[in-house]
Simulated scan of single mutants.
Amino acid sequence: MTTRILARLSLLRLSVLDDHLSSHVDRPHLAGSFRFLAEFLYFGIKEARACLFAGLFFVAVFAIPRDGLWGVPRYDALLIAAVAIQVWMVRAKLETIDELKTITLFHVIGFALEAFKTSSGIKSWAYPDFAYTKLYGVPLFSGFMYAAIGSYIIQAWRLLEVRIAHHPPYWMAGVMALLIYVNFFTHHYIGDYRWYIAACALGLYARSTVIYRPLDRDRKMPLLLAFVLIGFFIWLAENISTFFGIWKYPNQLGAWSAVHVGKWSSWSLLIIMTFTIVANLKHIKERTHVPA
């Protein structure tokens, strides 16, 4: 009973916060540096709120010891925590069923990539710890790391009232997303064409603009810049995850070292693919302008 009451209180507080962040109150008195600081602060709060799933999952990463918890191996405990967070977000109506279906697709895409990259013939990285919930050497919680990116984009879209101007035709964006994903597999056999794909993406999204509202006025940003910035923060999160031994690259098996900065480009491309999938949600399409 106490746990249920605490859960309701936390949800109530989150609802109050969301209502405040989504309010449309004009603030004409703000100008100059005061407006900049206020918008920067609210932008940061909204971004942090959009990272709710990822943030709670990282709390679990920090809180669960490497030896596990109450006899449950760490990877299995992380899976339980991730499922619990996801169920709570849906039941609390922080994510809809349609959004959950899209997020589930990221689980499938992410797991397929993880299984290939950790296979005996590739060994790009590894999950060294034991777990009951490993399949093909990949702990099942790993899919939630990809789903967290999709969850972030969905939440940020709502909180920042995002609109997209000059989005490329959906079929072109879909082909680009497919090429990005396929290259993650094929570059082990026929060469890495990420920079050629990146050049194509540069041309495809050159005119695309993100229109968002950090406070009470619309601001604009090139969509390509948004992809690069999100990729950078995921690269930072990857450094934190490998530092805590959630997974390891071959050069980190003896002692930890920073993830190569080249992974930043991989994550930025993955964001393009993720965004393309999320952009097909009905309520997001309604705020996306595709030139005729």
Rank of each mutant, 00 (worst) to 15 (best):
W264A: 01
I272Y: 10
D98Y: 14
Y189N: 03
V87Q: 01
I164S: 14
K282V: 05
P291I: 02
G32H: 07
V72Q: 09
D18F: 11
A226T: 14
T2W: 15
Q155P: 02
I64C: 06
Q86I: 01
M221Y: 04
I45C: 07
K220H: 09
A199G: 01
F116I: 00
Y42G: 06
G55V: 04
I122V: 13
M1P: 11
H283A: 05
E114N: 13
D98H: 12
F53D: 06
L215F: 09
V108F: 08
Y189I: 10
S257F: 09
E114V: 10
H107N: 15
W247T: 06
L202N: 06
L270M: 09
A112R: 01
L225W: 15
E286G: 03
H188W: 05
K220R: 12
R4K: 13
R13Q: 11
F34R: 13
E238Y: 13
G174T: 12
K248F: 08
P128S: 06
N239Q: 07
A279H: 07
K134D: 05
T276Y: 01
P250C: 11
L202P: 01
V25K: 13
F106H: 02
I97G: 04
Y189F: 15
I103G: 00
S265V: 02
Y181Q: 06
R287T: 08
W264F: 10
Y127R: 11
S241E: 10
H187F: 15
I97E: 02
N251S: 10
W70Q: 06
A156S: 12
P128T: 08
F184L: 07
V259H: 04
L21S: 08
A279L: 13
S241P: 01
Y205N: 05
T104H: 10
I45Q: 10
L224R: 11
E39W: 09
V278G: 04
D216I: 01
S142W: 06
T186E: 04
A165S: 13
L11Y: 06
F130W: 09
L52W: 11
L78A: 06
L9K: 12
A84L: 13
R217D: 03
L78T: 04
A201I: 08
I45D: 09
A156N: 11
A258W: 14
N239F: 11
F144L: 04
W247F: 12
W171K: 14
G55I: 10
A82Y: 10
S119G: 13
P139Q: 05
V16H: 05
F275E: 04
L179M: 10
L270R: 02
V16C: 08
A131V: 07
C200Q: 07
Y170F: 13
L215N: 07
A201Y: 04
A148V: 15
L105N: 06
L223Q: 00
P28Y: 11
Y249Q: 01
I284H: 00
A201L: 08
P291E: 11
D76M: 11
I109S: 04
V175P: 00
W125D: 01
A201N: 09
A148R: 00
L6V: 15
P250A: 05
K220E: 08
I180N: 05
A60L: 01
L159Q: 12
L270I: 00
F144V: 14
Y75G: 10
A84G: 03
G262N: 09
L202I: 06
V83Y: 00
I211W: 04
M221N: 03
S119F: 02
V210I: 15
M221C: 08
H24Y: 07
